[in-house]
């Protein structure tokens, strides 16, 4: 945060007429770097960037605007996500507005490769069609059965692996 503050001070000092565009671009890079440290409240092994919900970052004279894509329309974590993003960016010293949009749908293939690895490490299978889901523990696919399409959060389903006798969750493929 303090480093971000320093960068911003430099950017602002530079922002004579010609440098303004470059400063905005570097501020955007900084914002994205900070967002990469904001965890998703329901899947805290993922940042909001790894989860793929950051749709757009805009910087102008009114401040910073971040548009996020809800993973599910009624996701109850949205308020927490908005608040965490606003608080993480507060150190940049500009007004922050976080808005949600359905301009494009969030889809489960927006999760980054690093995000998928982090999920597998905590026993959550990556999104796949229910028939193609693999056990995150033993990688079996043939002996995996879906217990229920609906799990502990809107974005997860419940599975059971008959090969290693382990129940597990998988992200819904949407």
């Amino acid at each position: 945060m303090s480093e971000a503050g320093t960068h911003l001070a430099i950017a602002q000092a530079r922002s004579g007429s010609g440098a303004a565009v470059g400063a905005a671009a570097s501020l955007e890079t900084q914002i994205r770097a900070i967002l990469a440290t904001v965890p998703d409240p329901e899947l805290p092994v993922l940042s909001v960037v790894d989860l793929g919900i950051v749709h757009r970052v805009d910087v102008d004279e009114d401040g910073i605007r971040v548009a996020i894509l809800p993973t599910f329309i009624g996701c109850p974590a949205l308020d927490v996500i908005r608040a965490s993003i606003a608080s993480a960016l507060a150190g940049l010293g500009r007004p922050v507005r976080v808005e949600t949009t359905f301009e494009v749908p969030w889809t489960s293939d927006r999760i980054s490769a690093a995000g998928l690895r982090a999920l597998a490490a905590v026993g959550i299978a990556p999104p796949a069609d229910p028939g193609a889901t693999r056990c995150p523990f033993c990688a079996s696919s043939g002996e995996v059965v879906m217990d229920s399409a609906f799990g502990p959060t809107q974005c997860r389903s419940l599975f059971y692996c008959r090969a290693c006798r382990q129940p597990f969750e998988a992200l819904k493929s949407v």
């Binding site: 599910f72 329309i73 009624g74 359905f102 217990d147 229920s148 399409a149 609906f150 809107q154 419940l158």
Partner: peptide, 20 residues
């Protein structure tokens, strides 16, 4: 139990759609 969770989750989806 699974159905308890499923029906609650389905309802949560529908209420989310309604809110939007």
């Amino acid at each position: 139990l699974e159905e308890d969770i499923a029906m609650s989750s389905l309802s949560q989806d529908e209420l989310g759609h309604a809110a939007a």
